[in-house]
Amino acid sequence: MALVPGVIKGLGVTFSEIVKTVTKGPETVQYPHAKEDPVPRARGVIALHEDNCTSCMLCARECPDWCIYIEGHKELAPPRRAGGKPRSVNKLDRFDIDYGLCMYCGICVEVCPFEALFWSPEFEYSEPRIADLLHDKTRLGQWMTTVPEFESYEAGAQVKGKKVPR
């Protein structure tokens, strides 16, 4: 038999936690009224920088559940220099991500070779209808404003820092 019975000791722990919560305030926040800031790396929603996209389809192919839909066509753009040949550029007709299917793995953002996709920590985009979770390219483009700058790295890292195109 211990000196202090375990039950009493446990009650002491509970009491001290009550005192802590009353004096220092709770650890939780009341969500709709107060919000916690998600970390910059948090995978909330995918933003599309449309100018960089060449509709190369890499993201759509690498997606593990194939929830990205892309359609595009080639277009002739005016030449860069006067007198040059007109350039052929890829125009994006459709870029949809179905967030009803998305697994938030981030492979599309990782494989994009032209830096057109970015993670934004924004998370408030639930919908009453599941079909509305399909974000088209204008909606995905609007998320670009919420993309935070990339953080600097911990000491000893040899990874090159990246910049978000604005």
Binding site: V39, P40, R41, Y104, G106, V159
Partner: peptide, 23 residues
């Protein structure tokens, strides 16, 4: 804050890791 996912980090890659640690 390091991997981007609370429950599903998806951080490990064949041959290394996806990203380095943030400062």
């Amino acid at each position: 804050s390091a991997t981007g996912g609370r429950f599903h980090p998806n951080f490990d890659r064949i041959g290394g890791l996806k990203d380095d640690l943030p400062a």
